[in-house]
């Protein structure tokens, strides 16, 4: 999957599919979401053109000497629910995080023809191997919560909510849930 995203790429994706992201993505988590929305509401420009972009919910560890980034796995997404519909309306086409979203946000992904991707929480060391370049583009004062532009190659993720209303979490759990009456 090339980043930034062309909507056509999203049509064939199904919840549960593994996708590999190559290209440019932007990071933002709690504090950066708040700031980005404040900036837009003031009528100022966003730190990056949102059209077709992927936002990755991550607050990486500082890079040790010789590395472009430290550990860089996903953070829990629901904390960004408050701001997500607004950013999807601005043109964001995919976000990468982990965990459930509210029903409102789930609908908002479909309305705006965007997908929710998840990657393995707690696998930050492994995921960092797929990040080739990291550069702060806004809100440096937020430390680990600053907005970074990342160049990624082979970045692994799974489709959680697709354009057709499927939900990886719901379907997966339904498939493996055992009826309590069968418990010995």
């Amino acid at each position: 999957m090339a980043a930034p995203v062309d909507e056509k790429q999203l049509l064939d994706l199904k919840a549960g599919d593994e996708v590999i992201i190559n290209g440019t993505i932007y990071t933002a988590r709690d504090a950066a979401h708040k700031r980005i929305c404040e900036v837009i509401n003031k009528g100022e420009k966003m730190p990056f053109d949102p059209e077709g972009q992927i936002i990755y919910y991550v607050g990486p560890t500082p890079p040790p000497p010789g590395r472009v980034i430290g550990s860089a796995g996903p953070t829990t997404s629901y904390r960004m629910d408050k701001h997500t519909p607004f950013l999807l309306a601005k043109g964001i086409k995919a976000v990468v995080g982990k965990g459930k979203r509210s029903e409102e946000v789930k609908k908002s992904f479909m309305e705006h023809r965007a997908v929710y991707l998840v990657t393995v929480g707690g696998a930050g060391a492994l995921i960092s191997k797929y990040i080739r370049k990291a550069e702060i583009v806004a809100f440096e004062d937020l430390g680990p919560e600053a907005v970074y532009r990342l160049e990624v190659e082979g970045f692994p993720a799974f489709v959680c909510y697709d354009l057709h209303g499927n939900d990886l979490y719901e379907e997966g759990q339904k498939k493996y849930r055992k009826d309590e009456s069968s418990v010995t």
Binding site: V58, G59, P60, T61, P64, R67, G70, S71, A72, G73, T75, G121, G122, A123, G124, A125, S128, P144
Partner: peptide, 10 residues
């Protein structure tokens, strides 16, 4: 191997 944390949330 790389001497970086298992998870970014340390």
């Amino acid at each position: 191997e790389e001497g970086i944390p298992l998870c970014q949330d340390t």
